[in-house]
Design a protein around this nucleic acid. Structure first.
Lengths: 203, 203
DNA sequence: CTCCGATCTAGCCATTGACAAGTCTGTCTG
DNA sequence: CAGACAGACTTGTCAATGGCTAGATCGGAG
């Protein structure tokens, strides 16, 4: 009986798949998606350098798993608040909240060059998230003006997505401070003004 | 006299710096910023694998140069249309237009993890671009309500940035089609509705 | 003509992602 | 209870990459 490996660590990790995803998300949040190293992740998880590839195939497989998990998480985050007539605005706030709380997932979700965009689980999760947004937009407008849904969804999604992205990447903090309630009010006021300008423009 | 190298290609490229930037932008547009290889760029430019490093130091230096050039280009693109009272909307359209026409620059500009964010030229170019946006917002609102400028800038920037990002990364084409005039109208209508919802929310 | 600095090359190293082949181990079957 | 089996993981290897150092080349100033 040679020195049992189990004294050091078990041969079977047990939950390597989830451990790899967690380590990868941490790495993305700390250093950006570009600096993610499969071998470094394996080191952190205490497994050999080739172990992650068994579960995910390759690097794109890891990113695909992260993006899929991200779309599921954002759906869980948004869906509960989109019930009432103010659901669309609340949903937008939840969208931004998710991006701030899960910057690693958020970054990967919108970098299709990193993952396999034709993955079926990924597509299903993404479509589910989009469906929640459309539903909340539908609930926000009066029953008659249903034609406008697409424009509203895209405008609202763009505003929330743009704000989240700029917040994460472009030092928006310098302009708005760090108090969530204060910048939410500032942003909402800006949306009202922007809508008025756009309406004036249309006439 | 050995076989003169100049028969193949001159020892000095002459405009290697700009050639590297152009090749790098093409590579980013074709395969994403993550797949950029300094050696591949050198091959395309017909120089040795270490030549680009002489001009840019390292990979981050190339991205820094691309981002700086991008901020200069977007300023040139936006500034001319922000004159009149409709300058803010026109500026937003120009912002999106730049992103669609220069996706490589646009991608790098908002990936600070790729470049040296403390580069002085970069900061100057970015601040100049931001200044153009603020000026056009100021021109768009009536003289009295100057307090609202920050909110309007952030809302407008977010909407334009979010739309551009989603267009490039999230298959927005499926929802809006590919006719620019049509989706511009749809988007503008959505902004009006969104502004109304936000105002209703504030009361 | 000569020197000198800017530009580029050649070679090297550690690291990486991907692949192939082998090893370990829990479980199921007979 | 023995043995087959399949899933999970390791080891070894390869080409490619980024970055570094030392050296070659060239063009222009003096």
């Amino acid at each position: 009986m040679v020195m049992p490996r189990s004294a050091l660590r078990p041969y079977h990790h047990g939950r390597l798949r989830q451990a790899v995803i967690e380590a990868a998300v941490q790495e993305v949040e700390a250093a950006g998606a570009g600096h993610l190293s499969m071998r470094e992740i394996a080191r952190r998880a205490g497994v050999s350098h080739a172990a992650p590839a068994y579960h995910f195939g390759d690097k794109a497989g890891i990113f695909t798993a992260i993006a899929t998990e991200g779309f599921r998480l954002i759906t869980e985050r948004i869906a509960p608040v989109t019930g009432g007539p103010d659901g669309f605005i609340q949903g937008g706030a939840a969208y931004v909240g998710f991006a701030v709380e899960h910057p690693g997932h958020f970054e990967v979700m919108f970098r299709p060059d990193l993952y396999r965009a034709d993955d079926l689980d990924l597509i299903a999760a993404r479509d589910a998230a989009f469906g929640v947004m459309v539903d909340s937009a539908r609930a926000a407008v009066a029953a008659g003006e249903a034609d406008d849904i697409t424009g509203l969804v895209v405008a609202g999604w763009s505003a929330a997505h743009g704000f989240a992205t700029l917040w994460l990447h472009a030092n928006l903090q310098d302009k708005l401070g760090t108090d969530p309630a204060a910048f939410a009010a500032t942003f909402a006021g800006g949306l009202v003004t922007l809508g008025e300008i756009a309406r004036r423009q249309q006439l």
